[in-house]
Each structure stands twice: as structure tokens, then as C-alpha cells.
Amino acid sequence: MKPVKWHACWRGFGALLLALGNACALAAGPARVEDSAADAVYDCPLPPPEQFEARVTQLSTSTWDKNSLGCAADLTFVAADNAQSDIGLQVQALLATTAYIAHVNLLWDFDLYGIRVPEWTARIQHAIEHGNVLDQRLAAVPVEDPDLLSARALYRLTWPTKVADAKTIMIETRAAQVLLEKAVAKEPKALGGNALWILGRIFFDLPEFAGGDGVKAMKLLEQAHAQTPGNLSMLRYSAYVHAQDRNPALARTRLTEMLSVDPDPADLQTAADELKNARDLATRLPDAALAQKLTDRRDALLQAQPQLLARKPTAANMHGGVDPITGKEY
């Protein structure tokens, strides 16, 4: 099996109520929404075979660009379709599809009033068509490979977030939990160490009445930290959980550790996003000096890589934009 990479930060299983509302409302008729479905279409020519791999790598590492990620997912799907017995390729294609959906989910998150919902839904629906085919193929594979299991878990966590009802989201989350538990039992470092902390995140995010367990979550996160200490998403999420656990000192430690992690060149967007989240969390602790260091680091990254998304929310419907009193971003 080829080595697999994973370039998407799963944003949590929340949004379930939001998602359902959207599904209902879409049927409700005219609203203040841009008719943007046409923007979900992107150009994605099939490269000649000798350039295929390089092209996919270039596209899938352009993690700031929805069209590149969409095309990377499409191309790997075609390749996987042409070599259905290549399990590694199926896994890679499913991860690429998941990374693309996660990216669109996050764009939707920052579109607080859902002004471009037609575009986001069209993109996600297109990706789900491929994702479901790949997932079914992998479900039929008799070997229990940790990366395969983790990839299927991530897909289950990601596809429904914005487009399915609450029940589906919960059911898929639990299915993901089972898959991840199997994966980390076989290989605690599955998916480059991501499987473990994401499992912790599931336990933290699930409500009490649906199997959530904060204590278990904390254990898994600490285990993930001991095992793969240089993962920006894990560090930031652990800090968030420690802050909620009223342990600001440990939260500060995790955020400080982020300062010495070099961004993964294959996923610069996640690095920029996590540095922003970390800065925001440091501001809340509050630790202004640490927040400044994280800001400086992120600014340097954005300056060196101006194509990265800055994730500014736009003002719409009397909300968002800059602080009208100070004129500053927040």
C-alpha cells in the first residue's frame, strides 16, 4: 500500500442542528442567497499518465484552494476506479475526497449566513457521490488495515456535517468511533498519529446522552500527545480541552509547543488555521504575550504564502465584519 497523507482537519461533529435546518429551509423558497451553484464547477483535465502523480500532488497540497482540492479528489477517484484492486489507491482517493469536503465544510462555516449555500452543497454532493463508491469498495476489503479503517472513519465524520440530519450525523459519528478504535488498537500511530486524537475528539464532542465521555477523551488526547507531539491540530485541540477543563497552565503549554512545530508544507492552510485558532485561544486564557507570538508566527506564514486563506468573516445581515466601534478585526 502506498503511504497515505491526510490534509484535512475535521471540524467536529457539531453543526448537526444547523445542517438539518438548512435541508428544511432549502425547500422554503426565495431568500437572500446568491445563486452560486454554477461556481461549484471547476476545470479538471486528466493529465497524461507520466504527469499524473506530480499533478495530483501539486493539487492536493494546494490546501487553500477549493478547486485544486476538488480536482485532486476527482483525479484520484478516476485512478482508483481504473485500478479497483489497488487498495492503497482507494484509500488515497477517499482521503482526498474527505479533505475536499472538509475544506468546503469550513468555507461554509465562515459563510455565517449561508449566502453561498448552493455552491457549497453542490460541491459536497458531488464529492459524496465518489466518496460513497470508495467507502463501499473499502468496506468489502477483508483486511483490517489501520489506515484503511481510519480513512473510512474520517469520511464518516466529514461527509454528513453540513448536509445530513442530526440522526445521520450521530450514527456516522458512532460508526467512525468504532472504526477508529479498531484502527488504533492495531496501530496507535494510524494515519500519521491523527487517528488517536480524533478519537479523543469524538468522545469529547459527543453529548452525554450519546456516549460522550470527557475523561476518556482527555486520556486519548494525552496519549496522542505523547506519541506524536508535533501535530498542530492535536496540540490546538488539546489546549482547547484543557482550557475547558479549567487547566489554563496545561492549555498554555500545548499552545506554546505549537510555536516550535514547523508547518507541514503539504498542508499549509491547516497550519495557518490552527495558528489562528491558537492565537484566539491564547487571547481567551488570557495570555497576551503568547497570543502575540502565535500571531507573529501566523503573520509570517501568511506573508510568505499569500495564497493562504485568512478566514475573515464577511458582514451580512447586520452581523460580522469588523468591530464597528474600534474598526478592528476580531
Binding site: A28, A31, V33, G114
Partner: peptide, 15 residues
């Protein structure tokens, strides 16, 4: 009441 908030609106999730 049935939720008829515009698509994507933040209140579309109001249960």
C-alpha cells in the same frame, strides 16, 4: 412552528 429560515441562515438550525 416549522423552521422556514432562509437557507444557510444561522437560525436555520433552530430546532
Amino acid at each position: 412552528m416549522k423552521n422556514t429560515a432562509p437557507p444557510g441562515a444561522i437560525t436555520a438550525g433552530a430546532p
